[in-house]
Design a protein around this nucleic acid. Sequence first.
DNA 1: GTGAAAGCGCTAACAG
DNA 2: CTGTTAGCGCTTTCAC
Lengths: 339, 339
Amino acid sequence: MSKSTPTLSDVAALAGVSTSAVSRTFTPGASASQETRRRVLAAAEQLSYRPNAVARTLSTRKSRMIAVVVSYLENQFYPSVIQALAQQLQAHGYHLLLFISDDHTSKDNDTDALLLDILQYQVDGIVLASTTLSSGLAARCHAAGIPVVLFNRTANVADVSTVTSDNYQGGKQAARLLLEGGARRISYIAGLEDSSTSQQREAGMLAELEAQGTILYQRASGEYQLESAAQATRKLFDTSSNDRPDAVFVGNDHMAFAVMDVLRNELGLRIPQDVQVVGFDDVPQASWGGYQLSTIAQDATAMILATVTTLLDQITSPPPTSPRHVVTPITVIKRATTH
Amino acid sequence: MSKSTPTLSDVAALAGVSTSAVSRTFTPGASASQETRRRVLAAAEQLSYRPNAVARTLSTRKSRMIAVVVSYLENQFYPSVIQALAQQLQAHGYHLLLFISDDHTSKDNDTDALLLDILQYQVDGIVLASTTLSSGLAARCHAAGIPVVLFNRTANVADVSTVTSDNYQGGKQAARLLLEGGARRISYIAGLEDSSTSQQREAGMLAELEAQGTILYQRASGEYQLESAAQATRKLFDTSSNDRPDAVFVGNDHMAFAVMDVLRNELGLRIPQDVQVVGFDDVPQASWGGYQLSTIAQDATAMILATVTTLLDQITSPPPTSPRHVVTPITVIKRATTH
DNA sequence: GTGAAAGCGCTAACAG
DNA sequence: CTGTTAGCGCTTTCAC
């Protein structure tokens, strides 16, 4: 008969010590003599023993798992984030439990169910990078005493940490860039209407326009989706050339690519001669030859770093911990879609 | 003092039943009377009780977690895969533990360490979508009795399941497409040299070329990276116009975009007039206006479905289970980069 | 520094 | 159908 995977006590038996001795040699700052440690290690090696993380979790109530919930991976911004997040967490000995919660197709209820699911796994923390938020979320996690950080979004609940970039400032800069390029009829293609991110970007743009004595020419929602963004573009530009926008600020790069495609290929417009375009995020593709998109760059590295440290601090320091709200600076990247 | 999260026995006490009764009402196909069930549910509701998945795992030895290891998320093929995988697994009540193992920067050792890490978490299965493979991997997981499926790659070990598309056929079709377009000097830009996928695609192309009485004009490796692919392109095309390739088959779409960029923007060549290009994967961006890349499409949906069912079958049916090797068909997508 | 023993929260025989 | 009783594998007081 094949014996199953070796356990702590198997090692203890082989090494001729107690289970606690074994446990101690596997616990970083524990007291164990050289000799004991040596024998335990030898025995463990011989059995090719691996500690059972689940049992450990049950006992310590620390799983070293972080739940990350995102809504969609089509937008390359999120894969980049996830990759960096996974790597940094791995470096700290944490693992990433990934949840996809499709904002477009799922109801609030589903998200709630997801959350409950997550909590069952005793994750040490949650980073919420999905656009929309379950209303009761913060409360529930707070009640469960589990640290949460909202990534790239904010919420009206005060006691949960957030990490965002300066979307408002970004909106202002986008407007300024377009204005400097001579734009006179500036439109905005929004993301999901209830996304704080999209709202802030729009607010910033509006403020800058007003400051410069102009107003927004038109707006439409692209809902963070390619097809919706394309539709929004058609709608905005379905008019005579004198009336149509001569510049468009798009809620994120992802949508901006779709916007550019219909502008150029369907409508036969030249960018930036006929219409200037600026996006937001600076995803990798923005710099590709096919688009050369002018955009407002988010400092993803800084955002992720802030997220990880905030989370880890929250995890290690005893509650109550006060929520942190870090906002990272943006930078404008001028490429070929603006003058 | 605040009581910590309620447990099974809290519920049992409140409901006035045994812990097993509670456990049973939370176990799908278990025997419990209407009355008991009702009371338990009421008590659970009142305490807002949530079963502890970790304790359950320790007891049942089933975690309902699947580890997914990928090497990079820059290539949009993988985010798409992960998203679909996560959704399908979630639908089956499984969760996705994500590991990033950078093929380019990490040594074999690191991957091994990663694997060990994964095993500690008692995952029910592993899908390996990273390019390179730890040599001892299959053995180790097999020993641990944990199902593995290799996604989009194969290995020389026989007893582990694989899901790939028909890369060989894809290579042939790519060659045929280029040849039909009138290409006479066809080059190949490979992925990582030790990637089975890249090898098979190349082999298929070579076979087709030979069948049609030609040979490969040149080759270079793009290592699945943008910058390397760009370099490879420069190298291949650094010659007089009579000698340079008039067509290039690129190991995947991801690299193909970089190839197109240097062809067009650095070298001033027209696609497809001066050089035809075909990629592999049919990632979302391939159909975008900026590229309109002709490519060999992988049926990601079929691949993922096969992966999930293979894994789940392996998990539910008692060992030993025989490995499955499913290969899904490819289809050629003709867009604007070929004649 | 070390071992004994009592859990962590849940499931799974096994009697009844 | 229900309760009792052992564990699952590891950590952690608490004496020694």
